[in-house]
Simulated assay, not measured.
Amino acid sequence: MNFSVDQLTSVEGWANLLIPYGLKLLGAIAIFVIGRWIAALLVKVFRKSLDRAKVDDTVTSFLGTVAYIVLMAFVVIAALGQLGVKTTAAAAIIGGMALALGLSLQGQISAVAAGVLLIFFRPFKKGDFVQAAGQYGTVEHVSLVNTLLVTTNNQEITIPNNQVWNSAITNFSARDTRRMDLTVSISLAADVDRAKAVLQEIADGDERTLSEPAPAILVNAITDSSVDILFRPWFPRVEFWGAYWDIVERIKKRFDEEGIDFAHQRRFIELRGGGEDKAA
């Protein structure tokens, strides 16, 4: 539409120029606002359906985020179309912006890719106690970018997902049972058979100890100052740490009562004279 100089200098001319574009702008804003509301509503319904299907919280969060991003991309393109921007051009612009953003955020994209792998392969889930990227903690949340762990002293550790995925992951909550691995070192003069019998009594006397697999009590090594006995009872995972602390204390008390000496570290000191031999 062409306007003369007189039209551009008159109020009516400006009104004829601005009103059509103002209406388009209002329409674009309305499309964006309403579209965002509809997208949020659809994602909410989608999340609830996943919850009813008892899908893991981590997967639900990830799929909900992806769905919202896709829906909002359509909303933005529709709003730009209302302004007169061709949708093909808008898609090209968005694609170019995504490419530029991707090049500048390669590290973050790597974390996102690792987050997708963590979410779908699920080496752990929310509530599991794990060791990941050298850190210990309970999994609180896994997002597209990072994993949040809560330590036993209630501190939060945020780890980028690419560091988690590229490291060895130990999931202490994956199995229902755990084995306690203790090495009890007694003196060379102590009665090995009695020490093994006392350890068996301690295992049998704790109701948390599993009978299957049976506790392993084996002489593992004899050094110059000790006899090392492996003590390996099994426990339900949820009972492990309570049993661990109780049993360590019981071993100390029972061995003292039975007169079984623990090994003591021995040090040998060699003394050399400082004088020189003299020839006769």
Rank of each mutant, 00 (worst) to 15 (best):
F3V: 06
F3T: 07
V5H: 11
D6I: 07
D6E: 12
E12S: 15
E12R: 15
E12W: 15
W14A: 11
Y21P: 04
K24E: 02
L26T: 10
I29V: 15
A30D: 05
A30I: 14
I31N: 07
I31G: 07
W37L: 10
W37M: 11
I38K: 08
I38W: 09
A40P: 01
L42M: 12
L42Y: 09
L42V: 08
K48S: 13
K48D: 13
A53L: 14
K54C: 02
V55L: 11
T58A: 05
A67F: 14
Q82Y: 12
L83D: 07
A90E: 07
A92S: 13
G95I: 00
A98G: 08
L101E: 02
G107L: 08
G107P: 04
A111H: 09
A113L: 13
P123D: 01
D128T: 00
T138E: 11
H141P: 01
S143E: 05
L144V: 03
T152R: 09
Q155E: 14
E156Q: 09
V164P: 02
N166Y: 05
N166G: 09
N171K: 01
S173C: 00
S187N: 06
D191G: 07
V192R: 03
D193A: 08
R194M: 07
K196G: 04
V198P: 01
A214T: 09
P215Q: 05
N220G: 09
S226Y: 00
V227P: 04
V227S: 03
F231Q: 01
R232E: 12
F240N: 02
A243Q: 02
Y244K: 05
I247D: 07
V248A: 10
R250F: 00
I251S: 04
I251V: 14
E257Y: 11
I260D: 02
H264M: 13
R267Q: 09
I269K: 06
I269M: 05
A280S: 13
